[in-house]
């Protein structure tokens, strides 16, 4: 009986570890601290500073004139928004070549440095600017409309609660929990990596603000019924009931069947 019980628990332990991993991943995203957004006009010295930073950190892949190489695309016309998004979320500079640049919690550059590089890139060719805080705060917005926009335009990749989802060949749509409104907005207007572009004609700035408001609401309200299990849908629920539900039941059944001391 003991041997049987031990065998039952063994795979359960692995599943438990996976589950723990999921929970830890979820919690891990809550570390990123929000920063103040500033959309100031670029000065010449800022562009100069940005160029220096670009040559030191980005030019290896994107070329000396940001014209692009085999390793990285041209940055002409991507706009300040793209730079602020990619560097502000730690995706750029990439640590190692991969199918997709992952978000990194520890951003290596200060906001001033990022703004400088953004100013430099924006000076090369016109592109989407860093959005005005009016549309990225998620305040004075219609959460319900944002939720509807999110479901139609975003949920198919990012999941109903922004938990992320898989794309083809190892690419993925990242988790959207606890992301700064500015970065959400910038991702929509610039279409980083696999993500399509949602320009202001597609989803208006107000609509984007509504989406941001919805995502902020999700950040706050996920725990109505208890632990959210990563908001991954029925798979994590099934895993939970198999590991914990069945595990607890068997533990009680063993206790019940064992002779008292």
């Amino acid at each position: 009986m003991n041997a049987l019980a031990a065998r039952r628990r063994h795979p359960a332990a692995i599943a438990l570890l996976i589950l723990l991993g999921l929970v830890v991943t979820g919690v891990g995203y809550s570390v990123l601290a929000p920063k103040t957004a500033s959309a100031t006009t670029a000065s010449a010295s800022q562009v100069e500073e940005g160029k220096k930073l670009f040559l030191a950190n980005c030019a290896t892949c994107h070329g000396l004139q940001a014209q692009g190489t085999k390793a990285g695309p041209s940055l002409a016309g991507v706009g300040a928004a793209a730079v602020d998004f990619q560097m502000g979320t730690g995706r750029m500079p990439m640590a190692a070549p991969a199918v997709q640049a992952p978000r990194v919690n520890e951003v290596r550059f200060t906001q001033e440095q990022i703004d400088a590089v953004a100013a430099y890139i924006a000076s090369l060719a016109p592109g989407p600017a860093i959005p005005s805080p009016e549309y990225t705060s998620g305040e004075n917005a219609n959460v319900a409309l944002g939720a509807e926009l999110f479901r139609v335009n975003c949920a198919m990749c990012h999941n109903f609660a922004g938990s992320g989802g898989a794309l083809t060949r190892g690419k993925y749509a990242p988790n959207l929990r606890d992301i700064e409104g500015k970065h959400i907005y910038e991702a929509m207007v610039t279409g980083p990596q696999s993500m399509p572009v949602f320009n202001d004609d597609n989803i208006s700035p107000e609509g984007k603000n509504d989406i941001i408001a919805y995502l902020h609401a999700v950040d706050k309200q996920e725990n109505r019924g208890g632990m959210a299990l990563g908001n991954l849908g029925p798979v994590s629920e099934g895993l939970f009931i198999w590991v914990f539900g069945l595990g607890i039941m068997i533990a009680f059944a063993v206790w019940l069947g064992r002779k008292a001391a």
């Binding site: 198919m156 990749c157 989802g165 794309l167 083809t168 690419k171 749509a173 279409g191 990596q193 696999s194 993500m195 399509p196 572009v197």
Partner: peptide, 16 residues
């Protein structure tokens, strides 16, 4: 199902 997942770089549409 709605095939909504468009990857703008590879131009693939994926059904979730």
């Amino acid at each position: 199902c709605p095939v909504g997942l468009y990857e703008q770089q590879t131009h693939h549409l994926l059904c979730p």
